[in-house]
Design a protein around this nucleic acid. Structure first.
Lengths: 355, 355
DNA sequence: CTGTTAGCGCATTCAC
DNA sequence: GTGAATGCGCTAACAG
C-alpha cells in the first residue's frame, strides 16, 4: 500500500505552503502564475487527490441540494429513486449536504412548472432532476446553466441541456430485451402484442416510445416472421380497460405473449387472471408492489427493472464529486443495467432493491 | 439534516471526557463501571456512531487483511472478485488497509493446504476467504477463531465455521432460475439436459450440486412432465468431450435445451456451433470472456451471473465494519442477486461488472 | 499574493 | 481511572 500523499507533501515538493496548494486545488484565486505552475506540475506528477472526508470535516459550509422529481411513493419507481438518494446521504453523512425535495405531479404539467419555477429561489448548490416534461425541464436547466449550478438527471435525459451526469437506462435496449424474451417464451406460430399507455401529452411516455421502437427493431431484425399486434391500457377507466383487453384477446386468439411497456403490466395480468386465462405470457417494467405480486402468483412472467435505487445513489455521488472535487464530466451518460426478474430471482432482487 | 453528534457531545452529556468515551467505544479498558454505564446509556439513547473516516485519519495503525482465494485470472470469476476487492480499497483509501493476496490452485488441494497454512504466519487483522475445499477451510477457520481474527467468506459458505459475514448466491435458487428459463425457452414436447462437471474430489462442485438440486426441484414441482437427461463435460480432454457431446445429442435428438451448471457452457456452445446445430438453447453460469463471446454470437441463450465483483466489494466493507466499528453480525449470510444475462442486456452488465 | 494558525472529529499519549 | 494535550489531513480566516 503506497502511503497517501498529503497536501503538505505537495506543498513541500512544490516549494509553497499548504494554504497555497489548497487555493489552487479549489480555484480560489489569489495565486501567482509561478506558484500555480509549480504546484500543478507536482499535482500532475503525483496524481494527487485530496481526501474527500477529511475535507468535509473541516469544511464549514453545507451544500444545499434540491431534488426535483415526481411525487415519490414508497414502493413505486420514484420512491425507490428517493430511497437511493437517502441511502447515499447516509453513506456520506460526514459530508454536509442539506437536501430539499421538491415534488411534482408527473401527470400534471402545471404542477411541474410551478415546482421547477421555485427551484432557483431555493438557492441550491446543485440539483437532481427527474425529468418528465421536456420544455419545462429545458427552462429550468437553462436557468441553472446561467447561474452555474450543476445538475444531474435521473431516469431520463432531455436534449439541449448540460447535466454534470445522467443516470438512466437504455430504453431501446430494454425494448429489445422484452422482444427477445417474448420471442423465446412463446411458440413461433403464435402471435404477440404490445400495450402502451394512453396518457397523451405526458412526455414521459417518451421512455415507453423508445422501448417500443427497440422492441419493433428486435423483431424486424431477428424474427420478422412474427406477428405483433398493438393496443393500449387506459389507466383512468378500469371497466373500460377490462372490456378493451378481453375484447382484444377475443379478436386475437393467437396472441400468447404480451409486452406492457410501462409499469402497468399488473392491470393486464389481474384482468387475465380473473378471467382464468393462464397461457398468455406477460412481460412488463418496474418492480412495483403490484408487479411483484403478479410475479409471485405467476400472472406475470418477467419484469424488466432499471435499478431506480442505484440511479438515486449515483446521482448524489456524482454531485459530491462535482461539488467537492470540482470534477465535471459534462454530459456523461451512465447506463443502468436492465435486470430481468422472474419468480425465482425475485426475493434476492427485492432485498437489494428495497435494501 | 440533523447535526452530527460528536464524541465531545457524548462526553458532555454523560459527564466524562472525550478520552473516556473513546476508551469505551473501543473496549480499551481502564474505565470504571460507573463511567461505562453512564456513557453507554447516552450512546444507546443517541444511537451514536463515530465517523469512520475521521477516525481513520487519526488512526496510526494500519489493518492487515489477507485474502485467501483461488488464483484470480482477470476476466474470470475470481478475477472479478479481486476487482471488487480492489475497488473497495480505492473507495475507502483513507482507511489504512494493507492487503496481501494468497492464491491457491482451486483444482489442487495441496496448494490450498499450503496457502492456508501460511495465513496465520502473516499475522492478519482479518481474512477474506474464497473457500473451495471444506476440510482445509475448516482447519483455517478454527485457527482464526482461536486467535480471534475475523474473516468473511465470498462465493461459498463452509459449515461449522464462524465468519463475520458471508457473501454468496443462493445456488438452489440459481438452479431454479435455469429451470424456469429452460422450460420457457423450449416447447413442452421437447426434452432437456443438464451437464455437470466431471472434476472429482473438487468440492467446489458443491455449488454445482446445489444448482442441480434446485433445477430438479423446479421441474418436479412445476413441470414434472418434462424429460431431463444428464451428462458431463470433461475439461481435460477436448476431443473426448466433443465425441461425448455429439454422441449424446445423437442418442437424444429431442433435447432442445441444455443447462451447464458451471461456467463451461462455452465449451458445449462451441462444439454445437461448429457442428451447425443452432436449435438447442444453452444456459450456463458466470460472465467469463468465453461465455460472453458465445452470448454475442448467439450460441448461448442466457448466462446466470452472481455479481462476483459486488461480493468482493462487500467483503471488504464488512471487514471495515468489523475492524473499525467492532460490529460483528456473526454468520450473517448476504445473498447476491442472480442476474439473467442475454444478448440485449449484456453490454450494460459488462460495463457494471468490469467497470 | 502568501505563510501561519486555529479548528473540524477523532485516537492516543501523558500527566494527574 | 481520567482529562488535557497533541496530531491526523484539510479548510478558512488572518496577518503580513
Amino acid at each position: 500500500m503506497a502511503k497517501q500523499v498529503t497536501i503538505k507533501d505537495i506543498a513541500i515538493m512544490s516549494g509553497v505552503s499548504a494554504g497555497t496548494v489548497d487555493r489552487i486545488l479549489h480555484n480560489r484565486g489569489n495565486v501567482s502564475e509561478a506558484s500555480r505552475a509549480a504546484v500543478e506540475k507536482v499535482l500532475m506528477k503525483t496524481g494527487y487527490r485530496y481526501n474527500i472526508h477529511t475535507s468535509a470535516i473541516s469544511l464549514k459550509k453545507a451544500y444545499k441540494i434540491v431534488i426535483a422529481i415526481p411525487t415519490a411513493i414508497p414502493g413505486e419507481y420514484w420512491g425507490m429513486i428517493q430511497k437511493g438518494i437517502e441511502h447515499a446521504l447516509e453513506e456520506y453523512s460526514d459530508i454536509k449536504l442539506d437536501c430539499e425535495f421538491s415534488y411534482y405531479n408527473q401527470f400534471d404539467i402545471y404542477s411541474c412548472r410551478s415546482s421547477f419555477a421555485s427551484i432557483a429561489d431555493r438557492n441550491p448548490n446543485a440539483v437532481i432532476i427527474g425529468a418528465t416534461f421536456a420544455s419545462e425541464t429545458t427552462v429550468l436547466c437553462n436557468k441553472l446553466d446561467e447561474n452555474g449550478i450543476p445538475y444531474v438527471f435521473v431516469d431520463a435525459v432531455i436534449c439541449d441541456t448540460h447535466p454534470s451526469a445522467t443516470y438512466s437506462s437504455d430504453q431501446d435496449a430494454c425494448g429489445r430485451i422484452v422482444g427477445r424474451l417474448l420471442n423465446l417464451f412463446t411458440p413461433k406460430d403464435t402471435e404477440l402484442a404490445v400495450f402502451g399507455s394512453r396518457r397523451i401529452g405526458n412526455e414521459r411516455a417518451n421512455n415507453s416510445m423508445k422501448r417500443m421502437s427497440g422492441l419493433k427493431g428486435y423483431f424486424e431484425e431477428l424474427a420478422p416472421y412474427r406477428v405483433i399486434k398493438e393496443s393500449k391500457i387506459s389507466v383512468l377507466d378500469p371497466e373500460e380497460s377490462r372490456k378493451n383487453i378481453l375484447g382484444f384477446l377475443e379478436r386475437n386468439p393467437l396472441v400468447k405473449g404480451i409486452a406492457v411497456l410501462n409499469s402497468r403490466g399488473y392491470i393486464l395480468a389481474d384482468i387475465l387472471a380473473a378471467q382464468g386465462i393462464r397461457d398468455v405470457k406477460i412481460i412488463t417494467f418496474d418492480m412495483t408492489r403490484n408487479n411483484v405480486r403478479c410475479i409471485e402468483n405467476g400472472s406475470i412472467s418477467a419484469i424488466i427493472c432499471q435499478r431506480p435505487k442505484l440511479q438515486g445513489f449515483f446521482a448524489v455521488k456524482a454531485l459530491i464529486r462535482v461539488l467537492l472535487y470540482n470534477i465535471e464530466e459534462k454530459n456523461m451518460h451512465h447506463l443502468m443495467p436492465a435486470d430481468i426478474i422472474i419468480k425465482e430471482n425475485l426475493p434476492i432482487y427485492q432485498e437489494i432493491y428495497n435494501e
